[in-house]
Amino acid sequence: MGDNSGLTEPAMDFAQIIQTVTLYAIPVLFAITVHEAAHGYAARHFGDNTAAMLGRITLNPVKHIDPVGTIAMPLLLYFATAGTFLFGYAKPVPVRFGNLRNPKRDMIWVALAGPGANLVQAILWTVLGYLLVAGGVEERFFLQMCRAGLMVNLVMFAFNLFPLPPLDGGRILVGLLPWRQAELVSRVEPWGFFIVMALVITGVVGNLWLRPLMSITGLFIDALLTPLRLILF
Rank of each mutant, 00 (worst) to 15 (best):
V133Y: 10
V205L: 09
G218M: 11
W109S: 14
A31I: 12
F233T: 01
F193T: 04
N102W: 12
A37Y: 02
L208V: 10
L199W: 15
L75V: 15
V68D: 03
D3Y: 00
W109G: 08
L213V: 14
N4P: 08
R171F: 03
V205T: 07
F159K: 05
R56M: 06
G6T: 11
A198F: 09
T58R: 01
Q144M: 08
M12K: 14
F220R: 01
L132K: 13
V204G: 08
G170M: 01
H35W: 09
N49H: 09
L76I: 15
P178M: 10
L54F: 05
A134M: 04
K91V: 12
A111R: 03
N102P: 02
I195A: 00
D106S: 04
S5R: 10
L86Q: 11
F97R: 12
N4H: 10
L29F: 01
P94F: 08
L224Y: 15
L199M: 06
Q121K: 15
N60R: 03
A223I: 11
F193P: 03
D48A: 10
D106G: 09
D13N: 08
F87R: 08
A198V: 13
V152M: 00
L150A: 05
G135N: 04
L210E: 01
T8F: 15
V68S: 02
M197E: 07
N99M: 04
